[in-house]
C-alpha cells in the first residue's frame, strides 16, 4: 500500500480528505498517526508564546529614537535623556562607579549626608510596591533633579561663583533620584531601563561628588 505524501498530509490539516484519501487514512495507521502529528504541530505553533526582547533592547531603541529626533528631548522624556547624554554607558564602569560612588558617598561630610537623607526620605516616602509606583517615583525624582540642574545652570549663567550649598542642594536631588532608582531596581531587577538609569545616576553622582570635593578643597572651608 502506498502512503500519502507528506505534502498531502500537511494539506489535510486544513482541508477535507477526498474519498480515496479518507479510505486510505481509515486503514493506514502510519498515515493516520502522521496526520495527527501534523495537526498537533500546527496547534502547537499557533499557541507559541510571545517572546521577551533581550535585555538592553529598550536602551538601544531609545538611543535610536533620540538620534532620529523621534523623542522630545524636553522634560517629559523617558528619563534617559539627561543622564545618557553624559556618555557613561559602560557596564564595567558602572560596577566601579557603584562601588566607588558608594564608598565615596559614605565618606562624605555629615552635611551632605544629612541633606541627602532628608531629601531621600521626603522623595521616597512610602516605599513603592509595584513597578508602576517605582517608575512614578523615579520620574518625579528625575523631574526634581532636572529642575535643580536648570536652576544651577541659571546661577552659573548669571556669572555667580559656584556655591557649596547650592551644589549640596543639587546633590540631594540626585541622591533622591538614586534612591528611587535603586528601589525600582529592587522591585524589578531585570528591567533594562531602571538598570541603565541606575548606572548613569551613579556616574552622575560620582562626578558631582568630585565637584563638591574640589569646591571644598578650593578654600570654602
Amino acid at each position: 500500500m502506498e502512503h500519502l505524501t507528506k505534502e498531502t498530509l500537511a494539506r489535510l490539516v486544513d482541508e477535507r480528505p477526498n474519498p480515496e484519501q479518507r479510505e486510505h487514512l481509515s486503514s493506514c495507521t502510519v498515515c493516520a498517526l502522521e496526520l495527527r502529528g501534523l495537526r498537533r504541530q500546527t496547534e502547537a505553533l499557533g499557541s507559541l508564546p510571545d517572546l521577551r526582547p533581550p535585555p538592553g533592547d529598550w536602551v538601544g531603541l531609545e538611543a535610536r529614537l533620540m538620534s532620529e529626533g523621534l523623542v522630545d528631548g524636553g522634560s517629559r522624556s523617558t528619563g534617559f535623556s539627561v543622564l545618557f547624554r553624559t556618555g557613561w554607558m559602560q557596564a564595567a564602569a558602572a560596577v566601579i562607579l557603584f562601588l566607588g560612588g558608594t564608598s565615596f558617598g559614605a565618606a562624605m561630610s555629615g552635611d551632605l549626608q544629612a541633606a541627602s537623607d532628608d531629601t531621600v526620605d521626603a522623595r521616597v516616602a512610602g516605599v513603592p510596591q509595584s513597578v508602576e509606583d517605582a517608575a512614578e517615583a523615579v520620574y518625579s525624582a528625575e523631574q526634581a533633579y532636572q529642575l535643580a540642574l536648570v536652576q544651577y545652570g541659571q546661577i552659573e549663567r548669571r556669572g555667580r561663583t559656584r556655591n557649596y550649598g547650592e551644589l549640596l542642594g543639587r546633590a540631594a536631588t540626585l541622591d533622591a533620584l538614586l534612591a528611587a532608582t535603586q528601589e525600582a531596581v529592587r522591585i524589578s531587577p531585570s528591567d533594562p531601563f531602571f538598570n541603565g538609569l541606575l548606572v548613569n545616576t551613579l556616574a552622575e553622582r560620582e562626578d558631582m561628588l568630585r565637584q563638591i570635593s574640589s569646591t571644598r578643597d578650593g578654600g570654602w572651608f
Binding site: 522630545d72 517629559r76 522624556s77
Partner: peptide, 29 residues
C-alpha cells in the same frame, strides 16, 4: 508628540509581541 514616557509605555506593552514575530521571521537573535 514625542513623549518618551508614552513611547516607553507602548513599548513595554507590545515589545514581546513585536519581538516574537520578528524573531521568528528572522530566525536569528
Amino acid at each position: 508628540q514625542g513623549d518618551g514616557q508614552a513611547i516607553r509605555a507602548l513599548y513595554e506593552r507590545y515589545a514581546p509581541r513585536v519581538y516574537a514575530v520578528v524573531r521568528r521571521i528572522a530566525g536569528d537573535d
